[in-house]
Design a protein around this nucleic acid. Structure first.
Lengths: 351, 351
DNA sequence: TTGAAAGCGCTAACAA
DNA sequence: TTGTTAGCGCTTTCAA
């Protein structure tokens, strides 16, 4: 193993000088710096992380707490993980994964053993017991999600209320006279996550505002059978039903049901989904979607974390990311489609 | 911060005794051990990871290299990550995530800086440039996947050939006279991963063996448009077509196309997919699937890694996990379904 | 602008 | 069975 002593010896300087060249926390003459850097290059030197952490009291590691086992929205966490990892690496930080089922003990272990400098916690519920642990650990922390009481911890989340509003606005513009929101399966509480509660509330509020009826449907069971059980409700096109799906999976299933029944999303029944743009674009029919851009959420979370790591204290406490709506086939009229230069065949083929 | 010195002081022993109590590498009297453990408990002591790593030359961290950004099969990696993390934690190891696009440099950094003790590398291609780096780094390593030349690195993979065989066997038993394998989109080389190449070869071999024609179809583009372009081929039921999808996404799309066209998977066109059991069960119609059980693959990989970490050298070099087939609706006759006590309505409704 | 030296909190060899 | 001590490879203070 190559150590800073080896580098120092080769460069003919003291070991501490090598350290100062790396940290930049002391001015070094051009000549010395050049010699040291050349020696590092020659030896392929890489500073030992444990020694550095021990002496410097910084591990350069972030703890990322994720619900990998939750079946719901399985793929949704990957863009987060990807973006967080990349953003951390840009700042010379590595990521240690913690699964949520390690719970509070996992957080304590990572913090107390000095494995991580900071935490990013995803899938935060409204009454998350980890908040307590995190506040006493007193490490820089960012929550993705929004607890009812964040106890001063910084939160980044998508504005669920606005997302619901946007979606319903679009449904109504597409001619909806009755909004059906596909909610959680009946056995799952839908106020566990603030985002979901806000989303449904925002949607209903916007419907009410436009004097349109709205209903949150809770499938009696999870998965396909659950959606199938709501089939009759969804197919009641004569009521000018418009459907709002909170997940891409729900959207996919709804679209599929409509197509099988010979109903064209858009023409007969408008559909809006809450999901990422790329996913919306890749469904059977491109679905008009409200997108949260998880990459942006992730980037903001990492940014906020590094503000804290640098001792910053002037954080807003809550950053709500505004969702955006992208109109696609499922809320377009045929004129729209012509105007957009799109091929109407796909959707109309099934009417 | 609570250190082992604090514990030692409270317990009235030397600091090294505390260390020996933790490692168990020296016999300690019952009395002393009890006193030390009580002191640890009282102080909530957790050993500092950096100090431990520096002194003990073991970081207790594994590097997990994953392709998080690859759009294909996005959700597929999560069970791996979950299982690997859990298995590592059982052995007191943490996981540092490395994204594959850090490439060889990422591996070198982690190894040379002493951040990790070992590597698990996923998504290994047949000609993976990282193999070179890994062999020179000489850390314990397990590859998930199968390069053409593993250079002595231990590999764990699913037996793709067997998977292809099993699937086609089932299709033929279900009355298939012509096997269509949904292959990679035309712009993606399908011999990049050994598993894919073997899967297609195994499938074709098995078809040939039964004197049935087989064809690997490469959709002209990725995503839905690609599948749509193969529609006519897939719907040629009069040729007693049987469809083999290598991914759950392809399976989902095929099933959907068939249903929209009023063709019942199973009754008219049998479908077999390569995917996890839970996913197969949750598609529009439960699809007969060949399953690799990624959890088992992951567990074997971690096991093999710890054999190496303990200095073991008698590893086989390659562990091929045998896939299993589960018959579901898409290859059942109506009799089967009756026998299995299942409801035939779903599938037959669309015939 | 640089060097010497004292830790950081552990592990493990050596000594008793 | 236990204690003493010399590092592990850095960061950072103190001194020049």
């Amino acid at each position: 193993m190559v150590t800073s002593r080896d580098v120092a010896a080769l460069a003919g300087v003291s070991q501490s000088t090598v350290s100062y060249v790396m940290s930049g926390s002391r001015s070094i003459s051009r000549k010395t710096r050049a010699r040291v850097e050349e020696a590092m290059r020659q030896l392929g030197y890489q500073p030992n992380a444990s020694a550095r952490a021990l002496a410097g009291r910084r591990t350069h590691v972030l703890g990322l707490v994720v619900h990998v086992s939750a079946r719901t929205e399985l793929a949704g966490v990957l863009p987060f993980i990807e973006t967080i990892t990349a953003a951390a690496r840009e700042r010379e930080y590595d990521i240690v994964l913690v699964t949520a089922d390690e719970g509070r003990a996992g957080l304590e272990r990572l913090a107390r053993r000095g494995i991580v400098d900071a935490f990013i916690v995803m899938d935060v519920t409204r009454e998350d017991e980890r908040i307590d642990t995190l506040t006493t650990l007193a490490l820089p922390t960012v929550l993705i999600g929004r607890p009812d009481d964040s106890r001063g911890l910084h939160c980044v989340d998508v504005d669920g209320w606005r997302a619901g509003e946007l979606a319903v606005e679009e449904l109504i513009a597409a001619g909806t006279g009755k909004v059906i929101v596909i909610g959680e399966p009946a056995d799952v509480p839908d106020d566990r996550y603030r985002f979901i509660a806000d989303f449904e509330a925002g949607a209903c509020h916007q419907a009410e505002h436009a004097d349109v009826s709205a209903e949150v449907v809770h499938p009696p069971e999870p998965g396909w059978p659950g959606i199938l059980a709501t089939r009759d409700l969804l197919l009641s096109a004569h009521e000018r039903t418009g459907i709002l799906a909170r997940t891409p999976i729900a959207a996919e299933r709804v679209v599929q049901l409509l197509l099988e029944a010979g109903i064209a999303p858009a023409h007969d029944v408008p559909v809006v989904a809450m999901c990422e743009d790329d996913v919306a674009q890749e469904l059977r029919i491109p679905v008009t979607n409200v997108s949260a851009d998880s990459r942006q959420v992730a980037r903001r979370a990492v940014d906020a974390l590094f503000v804290q790591l640098r001792g910053g204290t002037d954080l807003p406490g809550l950053q709500l990311v505004a969702p955006t709506l992208t109109r696609r086939a499922t809320t377009m009229t045929s004129q729209d489609r012509g105007r957009a230069g799109l091929d109407a065949t796909e959707a109309s083929r099934h009417t």
